[in-house]
């Protein structure tokens, strides 16, 4: 869920930019380094960004009957790491603001913080930890993307609560209200996104597993193990 233009009052939207901009610049620095080493990655990253955009504009079936969109940023974090995922999501969010009128320009900082930075970092940490602990690959992907999605919404609720503290009970009370509405309605959606991403990875491994090895997502040995289990 994107925070819409004009929704965050004055000190807060600037503060979220202060939080996001250094991360985006670090991401750009990493991106520049990566691209100067391997120039063939630049078009690949561009199409990956376009893929995230298209993925996030697809409607996802949802249990409650309402529809939602996958964020796709958890998947980007698993594929390219959180720093580059942050840069890609910044571009995607900017395009979404301009093409689809999702999100906004002053709230871009806050949206990048939740969808482009904190969500992907969650996905990446869970993914790395899970792979180290030798848990089943698909379970790890499911957990990483589901929690990334959910973390995104918890952060969004926190951002709104910080900006609009309740008169009685302050930030904590309004956080409870926003969490109750946004984070709980997101639990089924987060599970959906996790399941969807795990399924995507299943098909990708069947059809084009060399791409994943090339991106250092999984090692050759893990891949052989998964393929062995499939057969």
């Amino acid at each position: 869920m994107h925070i819409f233009e004009g929704f965050l009052p004055s000190p807060w939207w600037q503060l979220w930019f202060v939080f996001s901009i250094p991360v985006i610049f670090f991401g750009m620095y990493r991106l520049n380094k990566l691209v100067s080493e391997k120039r063939e990655l630049l078009p690949l990253l561009a199409v990956a960004g376009a893929f995230i955009f298209v993925l996030s504009s697809l409607k996802m079936p949802s249990v409650t009957g309402s529809s939602s969109h996958p964020t796709g940023t958890g998947m980007a974090a698993i594929l390219f790491g959180p720093a580059i995922a942050a840069v890609l999501s910044t571009i995607v969010l900017l395009y979404q603001a301009i093409f689809l009128a999702h999100g906004g320009l002053t709230t871009l900082g806050a949206n990048v913080a939740s969808m482009g930075i904190i969500g992907p970092v969650f996905a990446y940490v869970i993914y790395k930890a899970g792979m180290k602990a030798n848990i089943n690959f698909y379970v790890v992907v499911f957990l990483a993307t589901a929690f990334a999605d959910w973390a995104t919404y918890v952060v969004t609720a926190t951002q709104l609560a910080l900006a609009f503290p309740a008169e009685v009970g302050g930030v904590a009370a309004s956080l409870k209200a926003f969490l109750l509405i946004f984070a709980t309605t997101q639990v089924p959606l987060a599970i959906m996104e996790g399941a969807l991403t795990a399924l995507i990875f299943k098909y990708v491994i069947q059809v084009k597993s060399d791409a994943l090895v090339e991106l250092n997502v999984i090692t050759e040995s893990v891949l052989n193990k998964i393929k062995g289990a499939n057969q």
Partner: peptide, 16 residues
């Protein structure tokens, strides 16, 4: 690199 990626991404959004 950032601008290049955004421009190429824009073109591929429509293809995809």
């Amino acid at each position: 690199s950032f601008i290049e990626i955004s421009m190429m991404m824009y073109r591929y959004i429509f293809v995809f």
